[in-house]
Design a protein around this nucleic acid. Structure first.
Lengths: 185, 185
DNA sequence: TCGAATTTTCAGAAATTTCTGAAATATTAA
DNA sequence: TTAATATTTCAGAAATTTCTGAAAATTCGA
């Protein structure tokens, strides 16, 4: 691996984390290298940095593009493909959330909706459906909320997060806004 | 697999999803079976339901316990260990978030903090550190906020989520609460 | 159109992860 | 205690995933 010690540790760590996030080690490493790089990199530069095969890099980049975590760009007067990661970490966070949603949440919601349409055959199925209903409600609520939050501008979003300990206080106002619906505490 | 068609589809789906969440298929399936079951189950019942080996079930249950996603309980007059999943889906969500944090976020923060302590040797390292700093800030902000939200009661939390489209409006009040610090929009 | 440069594909090899059965260990009722 | 019951461990087998090199496909300047 052809990286400074500082970068190497980061890249190795992201390799490990990658596997926990549903991509393989190499894909995590390619992302990490691009994330740290001051300039876009082409595939051969990544091969050189990580010491893996050219074809592996090609497949990894495909995967990262499908996650919209890297962008393909061209340099003037150079036929090769260059890649970079979006600069804004907020944007990255958002993209990741959207993709996770598309790949994990939506299929689960579809499954749950289908299951809830069926007529339970016995007491066990009735109970199973009740559990699925609870899960469905939780996911709908959480993702619906996430949608709303995501619709905010990055500034507003950062703002919201910085509120921190004030959430409680804000909720008091919120309940004031909608008398009779929430306002439990 | 010894399950009603309704339950089988759910269990298979959770097997697939499990692998995307850092546990293997079997672990996901064991969790799903327990989640749907009206009563706690012992290991042999799980073997029967899923058609996998006893030892595999034993290992899977260990893993799920380490995630605090299943609880070990005992039935009066029965030596065998029984398992169940926590009833409240909110609690499950919270537990999962805590464990993910401990296993993924904290190690990453530690790595980033260490890297940021080092003196950059050249321009490339200076840039890499700057990227790491941005990532560090984002994670600190997001998890700090998550901590605050998590401290709320489940009722309040549900409340907060139901606010949905009101977040924008609430923020106006929030900025009013802290004049001069936020209030950008 | 040709051909050099570049990227992608894919079959099989290599590595890793998961799973099993058998043996070891632990628990408890009698 | 002992013996029956229950759980865990773990080495090797099986399955799956990842990786590579070679070949195929694509792109584009001349």
């Amino acid at each position: 691996m052809n990286l400074s010690p500082l970068n190497e540790r980061f890249v190795l760590h992201f390799g490990e984390m990658g596997s926990r996030w549903g991509v393989n080690r190499t894909v995590g490493q390619i992302y990490a290298v691009l994330f740290l790089s001051p300039e876009p990199m082409n595939a051969d530069q990544i091969v050189d940095a990580l010491g893996i095969s050219r074809s592996n890099v090609s497949m990894g980049l495909k995967e990262l593009q499908s996650w919209r975590l890297v962008k393909l760009i061209h340099q003037a007067g150079d036929r090769r493909d260059y890649f970079e990661t979006p600069k804004d970490v907020w944007e990255i966070f958002r993209t990741l959330a959207e993709e996770k949603r598309k790949r994990e949440i939506e299929p689960t919601l579809t499954l749950l909706r289908d299951a809830l349409m069926e007529t339970p055959l016995d007491e066990a199925e009735r109970h199973a459906q009740q559990r699925m209903r609870e899960m469905h409600q939780l996911i709908e609520l959480a993702t619906g909320w996430f949608d709303e939050v995501q619709r905010l501008s990055p500034d507003t979003l950062e703002n919201l997060m910085r509120l921190g300990a004030r959430v409680q206080k804000v909720l008091e106002f919120a309940s004031f806004l909608r008398p009779g619906k929430d306002g439990k505490d």
